[in-house]
Design a protein around this nucleic acid. Sequence first.
DNA 1: CTGAAAGCGCTTACAG
DNA 2: CTGAAAGCGCTTACAG
Lengths: 340, 340
Amino acid sequence: MAIEKVTSQDVARLAGVSQSAVSRVFTPGASVSPAMAEKVRKAASELGYRPNVLARSLITGRSRIIGLVVAYLENQFYPVALERLSRALQVEGYHILVFMAENSVEGVAEVMQELIDYQVDGIITASVGMTTDLTLRCAAAGIPVVMFNRGQDGLVHSSVTSANVAGGARAAEFLAAGGHRRIAHIAGWDGSSTGRDRRQGFLDGLVASGRKPIAVIDGMYSRDAAADAARQMMALAEPPDAIFVGNDHMAFAVMDVLRYELHLSIPGDVSIVGYDDVPLAAWAAYDLTTVRQPVKRMVQATVSTIVAKIEDPTRPPQKIEIDGPLILRKSARIPEGWLR
Amino acid sequence: MAIEKVTSQDVARLAGVSQSAVSRVFTPGASVSPAMAEKVRKAASELGYRPNVLARSLITGRSRIIGLVVAYLENQFYPVALERLSRALQVEGYHILVFMAENSVEGVAEVMQELIDYQVDGIITASVGMTTDLTLRCAAAGIPVVMFNRGQDGLVHSSVTSANVAGGARAAEFLAAGGHRRIAHIAGWDGSSTGRDRRQGFLDGLVASGRKPIAVIDGMYSRDAAADAARQMMALAEPPDAIFVGNDHMAFAVMDVLRYELHLSIPGDVSIVGYDDVPLAAWAAYDLTTVRQPVKRMVQATVSTIVAKIEDPTRPPQKIEIDGPLILRKSARIPEGWLR
DNA sequence: CTGAAAGCGCTTACAG
DNA sequence: CTGAAAGCGCTTACAG
């Protein structure tokens, strides 16, 4: 049933040339005469021959596989990024091998091991915290790593994030300018750089406007945790009139609690600002004012960084930060005369 | 900087045994003495050795890579399925190589070619229509294919779907029992078996209740197309009082149009029933009554089917259909005494 | 430009 | 149980 695999040998035989010649025809940049190329291509297409990428990788040391380590896909930001990353990488001749990780040290360790087994040319991590241990092991194995949407203190790996501190500050400034008096923050996971940076930027921004948050709770990037945080905050004697939420995914949960459990109006009773601008944020049901993460440019930067590093392993790691605008929609009161 | 790769040779040298012995220790089922295993493992862990999966695949003819062809990830059903597929396959020792396809014949053709280049052990397609051409080429290359959430007329490949005809019928029966008088359908893409089957089941179910739909429009599994369809239907002299929508992703768009453009109440003015039961359907903002696709069981069936077929290529293709319940929420009037 | 040969890192008969 | 050897399908110096 299964037709025999056709190899460069078979093509060589049919074309009446050496096997090396066949290989050269399929190796960009190798020197072959037009006549040879012609003959070989004809035979190849007759047999339906294509080079075995895995065999090639054994000798070139390049698998053209990029490992993507990701912990969960419920937050719409990640599927969107995955789709874009995959398409952009395909254009460069790479493909993504998916590794779903538990967000635990052992989970990530196990995955890293498998990544190495598959001889991936590079690793992109998304939505995973990586410990220094693993970081070092990758460096030891000589595999370039780019952290997508997560930063790192040291300068071991490259990372691509949006300008989270600035974004958080922008949210603060906006909410302050909107005349809100009791501003709270449901933060992104404190174990992540994005969560910490957005919180930091937000608090700094508030201070710059001469204010302080009335409450800050870690929402863990989880719907349930964020919903609980919202309930807690709204049970305060003086509940917030504005909440900056660490990402859209949590903001949706918060909005659901405010509207459908507490029967509050948004932004009438409480203004909500999110972070990410996932497609769902633009749907009428939420219509969420949010700080956009420029996924397209983040993906471009990620792809070009990792490709460059694969081609030249001596390249130093880069920290890339891309600024994103505040997208005005209907979930937060817009300050008079606000022009962005 | 990049530490040298450690090979089975290196381990053999350190352990003072032959390279084949090292290989055997890492080959499940090969015969090695406990003493040998002990020695080799010690040397291996000392050097941080792990077998090169790609080199292994060259000789075994098994890459332990499954190609996943998927067209888009905006519909939350697919990221959820991707995550579950990936985790389940990881347990079986496989990983997913992602191929984002254009939903065109050429797009899929190009992708199929690359799939073969990477020597994938099997292919799972999701959200893609495949033409018979490609179908045959895969068979020719001897690569097992399982179509996830899409059926096929012939019996060339295996497929795993939910019981779409039955599901559509269930929706019809439910809406009819709810006493709706003007029932319409925004159908899934007519080019897909799921879209056609759900429509067919729905129409049959309506007939069984002695009714006919007042309108049927192809929503193309697209938010925009579905929204347009909703606008068209609601502009009718006698607009529908219930709409069965071919999947949740479109149903959300329809609900947004009804509520926020037309200021109608759901289910007060119009009942909505969807299909899939994606996580978002349970969120309070939509609270969508929908026919569940049992993703977990569909994934299990997909994984076991493809693994079995890889292990025994003579296995005949299978068509697996898994029944899913109607999940009652708040977007559709519940008939009195309705007990499921 | 072209071919013969070595070798990438493994697995797997084949002897012993 | 163990080792020497062949070979998976390629790429790439090395001669010519």
